[in-house]
Amino acid sequence: MLELGSSESQAVSDFRCTDGEGVKFVFEAYGILVGVTTDDLELSRKLFEISNRAMLGKCRVLDASNAKAEHEFVIKKSSGDKFELTSVGEYTTGSGDLRETLELFVRILRLKVSQFAKNWVFVHAGVVSWDGKAIIIPGNSGSGKTTLVAECVKQGALYFSDEYAVLAPDGFVYPFARALSITNGGRKWSEDGIPVEKLGGRAATEPVEVGAVVLTKYEPGAAWRPERLTPGNGIIEVIPHTIPMTIDADFSLKVLKSALSRAIILKGVRGEASDLAAELYLFSYNKLTT
């Protein structure tokens, strides 16, 4: 279930009432400015809290009367207990209950930030590290990267993300350590994940260099016998998972080169995630650490 904290509310001091149109707040996350308008102050606070949680505490509230948002959302009651979400200039979703609407909002927010973040390149990937070198595991939704990341964490890896490799021009990968998106008996959505600590692991707090990229997909019974790709061939395999590639190819390619050109890039099919996690643990200590 979605549970809303209250600590972030203390930070919210710049929400503005717009005449007859409700409450508007603007925040910055990963360099982009997002505006949200609602018809209810309490809902505004709730939206900021979940935005901040979705962005792992990186949202900074701005003065809504001065800041010009690049992406605007409007969330308002449509009828009864139904709500409507509009991504301004794009589309309005059908009515849903509050939970569905908030869920949708968080997903669209993540998408916007991952596409338009300034000075960051988001890659769809799981990320862990051993001894200061990251292993990036690119993959589409449903490709099993969360399962593999969880198994690596159980093998002692530091947790960075099960969703995004967040790369910067310095060539480092930064933590995006959200709760792992593992189904836990009930309905699953992005905020219902399992904190890494519950797996006995720890979340990274500092960026590290990329030691390796693992391009893999599951095949029952397969053994891990990867081929090593050249940096160039490895980078073009990562490009389809690079979210802002079609928006800012020049910057994305520069950052990919900076982050991956010294990494070991492996490609191959895998069997069970626990087996590959054990292989990666050994590989990491034998090949990546100095």
């Binding site: 998408l111 991952s114 596409q115 769809h124 589409n140 939704s141 449903g142 490709s143 073009i236 395999e237 490009i239 389809p240 998972h241 690079t242 979210i243 802002p244 590639m245 079609t246």
Partner: peptide, 12 residues
Amino acid sequence: LVAPKSAMASTS
């Protein structure tokens, strides 16, 4: 290799 036309095109 072809990159997806949008970020979400890489979903499943």
